[in-house]
């Protein structure tokens, strides 16, 4: 199975293509404002039509191809074949309904199951995401659950219809590390059990290393680097990827000054022409006013930089 998306709204997401194979976790990494969440929303068809224009783009799930520019995704797709979980589980669950009813609603909407069938399915799903006492939990309200538990409920709801694609937007960012480890374990187990493809959005490179098979680094709405996760970590090509990696306060070099990415992400209106990273890039030159193409530098490893690999094209003298 493959999923493909070409989106180009004026600026926000600029010719982004993603692909996630069955049973694979693809991580999209980047800082706030890099367009990673918008890309996911566009995939799900969640962007309001009056304020957003998708000027080109296709979505392929299995054998079916949908033109994202034309109309909204058919209902059978959203929520059943592609499902999404969000960062803050408290705001995405309805506080006024019991969690059992919320999961059942998702099941009945898509499968036409009867209420008892849906209830049984919901109970089964809660069991699968590791919630103890599922038959009682069905009757509880979201506020009675802890943050980690709510995220498990969200995952149960998303997976209730056996989706082929799961999009997870920062699913562990709001959680504590011990709970984050539990949720990552859960996502990994479910992926192995269901062979679904997962697109996970995160800004934490540690999480990426933990769970991803492949990684896409985005900056300013463009893909700057893409490849298998080990390959990108061992052989980072784009200056932004390198900057992000060296800015992580790691456990290995305490006290030392961190290398930084100077400045901040420009707003979409002020985005420079050509390579969008050039205003913050230490290696930028006149050539960078032209947009670099995303080209293959090693097997399956693509990078959009005029000067990759850096050491062959750039010398730095102190």
């Amino acid at each position: 199975m493959a999923l493909r998306f070409r989106g180009q709204s004026n600026d926000v997401v600029d010719h982004v293509s993603l692909e996630a194979k069955s049973g694979e976790v693809l991580c999209i990494v980047g800082e706030s404002g890099c367009g990673k969440s918008v890309t996911a929303m566009a995939l799900m068809g969640l962007l309001p039509q009056e304020s957003s224009i998708i000027s080109s783009g296709n979505l392929r799930v299995g054998e079916d191809i949908f033109d994202l520019t034309r109309d909204t995704l058919p209902r059978v797709m959203r929520g059943s074949r592609i499902a999404m979980i969000f960062q803050e589980p408290m705001t995405s669950l309805n506080p006024a309904f019991r969690i059992g009813d919320q999961i059942c609603e998702a099941i009945i909407q898509h499968s036409g199951a009867t209420r008892p069938e849906a209830r049984a399915r919901a109970e089964d799903m809660l069991q699968r995401v590791g919630i103890a006492n599922p038959s009682q939990r069905l009757f509880e309200y979201p506020h009675q659950l802890s943050g980690g538990m709510r995220q498990r409920v969200m995952i149960a709801m998303a997976l209730a219809n056996d989706p082929q694609v799961l999009i997870a937007d920062e699913p562990t960012t709001a959680l504590d590390v011990t709970i984050q480890a539990q949720i990552l374990d859960l996502i990994r187990d479910l992926r192995d059990a269901t062979r679904m493809s997962t697109i996970m959005i995160t800004h934490d490179l540690g999480v990426v290393a933990e769970i991803a098979d492949r990684i896409t680094v985005m900056y300013g709405g463009q893909v700057v680097e893409q490849g298998p996760v080990r390959e990108v970590f061992d052989n980072p090509q784009h200056p932004y990827t390198i900057g992000l990696m060296s800015a992580m306060p790691g456990l290995d070099r305490p006290g030392e000054r961190l290398a930084i990415v100077p400045g901040t992400v420009p707003t979409i209106a002020n985005m420079p022409k050509g390579c969008r990273f050039r205003t913050r890039c230490a290696f930028a030159a006149a050539t960078c006013a032209q947009r670099p193409t995303l080209s293959e530098i090693a097997p399956q490893h693509h990078v959009a930089c005029h000067f990759a690999p850096l050491e062959e094209h750039i010398e730095v003298t102190r």
Partner: peptide, 30 residues
């Protein structure tokens, strides 16, 4: 806990650090 970075990555981190800390950058056109 020490991150095992590959030699290539290590070299590029050094290059990056030198450039962001004010080293002079010379380009060789591709």
């Amino acid at each position: 806990t020490a991150t095992q970075k590959s030699k290539t990555a290590e070299a590029r981190f050094a290059l990056y650090r030198a450039a962001t800390e004010g080293g002079a950058v010379t380009h060789n056109a591709k």
